[in-house]
Design a protein around this nucleic acid. Sequence first.
DNA 1: ACCCTCCGTTTGTCCTGGACAAATTAACGC
DNA 2: GCGTTAATTTGTCCAGGACAAACGGAGGGT
Lengths: 311, 311
Amino acid sequence: MNTPAFTIAAVERDTGLSKDVLRMWERRYGFPTPDRDEHGERLYPAPQVERLRLVKRLMDAGHRPGKLLALADDDLLALAPKRPPQAVHTAQALPDGHFEEFVAHIRQHDVAGYQQALQQRLARQGLFAFVQDTVAPLATLIGEAWEAGHIEVFEEHLFTELTKRQLRQAIAALPRTAQPPRVVLTSVPEEQHILGLLMVEAVLSLEGADCIPLGTQMPILDIARAAEAHQADIVALSFSVAFPQRQISGLLTHLRSVLPATVELWAGGAGVRRLSDLSGVRIMHDLSSALAALAAWRAAAKPEAGPHPSA
Amino acid sequence: MNTPAFTIAAVERDTGLSKDVLRMWERRYGFPTPDRDEHGERLYPAPQVERLRLVKRLMDAGHRPGKLLALADDDLLALAPKRPPQAVHTAQALPDGHFEEFVAHIRQHDVAGYQQALQQRLARQGLFAFVQDTVAPLATLIGEAWEAGHIEVFEEHLFTELTKRQLRQAIAALPRTAQPPRVVLTSVPEEQHILGLLMVEAVLSLEGADCIPLGTQMPILDIARAAEAHQADIVALSFSVAFPQRQISGLLTHLRSVLPATVELWAGGAGVRRLSDLSGVRIMHDLSSALAALAAWRAAAKPEAGPHPSA
DNA sequence: ACCCTCCGTTTGTCCTGGACAAATTAACGC
DNA sequence: GCGTTAATTTGTCCAGGACAAACGGAGGGT
């Protein structure tokens, strides 16, 4: 309990900042300033780890490290956006609001209450509206609260875990119609967020598509193999906002090059927001564009078939 | 499609071998031997990445890199354990066998068939026997097949994803009694496997314990905060066989030092198999020891009290 | 005023080569 | 056979240098 010290590997794990970056910041900006153990290896005091996590949060929110690391602690904290009232207000303005109820359950660590509230909402709205008007905005709201530092990591995890369960349960309750196209859903290594993928799966499954959920973190070569083995028509990937932006386009290009040309590649999630178009890759910014893409695929697949692209 | 080349970061992602290790192996053992791009950066040909993945598999199975990297390709492949028939046979010998049915569904990428088979088994056995006699041995079986190279990564992922769904669904169907102890279930950063955690949750929930599932990859400091915020009695962690052995004991000691002394720390999973005891940490090697530990906690907590302390 | 291109700056990742400690294996004495 | 010590194996860390991709602002054209 007494001033627990973190090795550089532990800091990498807990902050998501690579060892290289940690050493480079120390060299360039003079922070962090870890102690050294008897063998000269870095030992980071807990307060510095805290500060690094705050910096990382602010970076994910768009700030640049050079500025952040030059600031004093107070100025850093002042940067944390003061949005929670506004955010909640925005949420309330959305159709079928009362998002603060959900957030309150999470904040109070009320597992049963949150599950029950979700369940009720699902029953009332139906799956599609539930995903689009409840889960998606909720995820955004929680994401904003997280960026602003208004909720703890474990609260975000609790939200994610409970919401995932609800979604999977709803998906499982759907009849398996398994019409074309067949869609393989997964994410690349290092990307462990699956909520977006589940939302897409829910929407596509509702339309009767044949979804193959492969979980997260699939190596590139295995994604290609999976597509082949499952005779997939589409590979759908999800990138969260936390995924290193600089890697995404290279990854997609790489994957595109190892995928059969007949397989479409879809990429969505908050991580592809600012992404420019790539040849052979379909970037989708929201759930409705996934629906549109599905309709487009079906239209292209059977140009003269019956006029039933979807509802 | 033409000889896709991997950067060192891509290889790290796809093999799980750190950049440091990749460079060190090249220096020490003369493998891998990546090409260089115009700027001198390593570019790994796909076949070498394949070989590295095989080597990693064999290492997880207990072999040592020095030996493996000195071998020729053929000898390497020969090392892949020839256990699938034996393993399947063992499985068949287990109570209420027919494991080959499940594996066959996975091998044929038959999503609906696998789900249905699981569902039937669950209904027939009840949750506890389902977890202990079906899911656990199945996971072992798949793990062995994976080590032996008899199934693809995406097949393992499919198995994991579908099985997770079934388990979560079963857990959700349980009545929430929420008796003590309150157990926070999670895993440390870098450890994304959750199947073991779900099995424990199922078993503990069946006994009426108040389980808080926080998903995977929780930073150490946040685990401590979560335990405090939720007023947890127990923190349960899971380590898969793939988790770097050398880090586990350090991690547990570190976590123990930041956890309140009144909170028990349980660690389970294939990763702690060869782990020696640590003070203040309870190592569990199977599901029944989790049950035993739960009983022990309850006995110690209320030697004379009634069975309804409630919240 | 707006957009686009160009150029300097910021920032992350990669490189080399060295060092050491934890873990494993081998050797040794009892 | 078994516990203890020595040797080897193996992963991680360190330092400092280099460079390219991304970012941001300045200037020129419409």
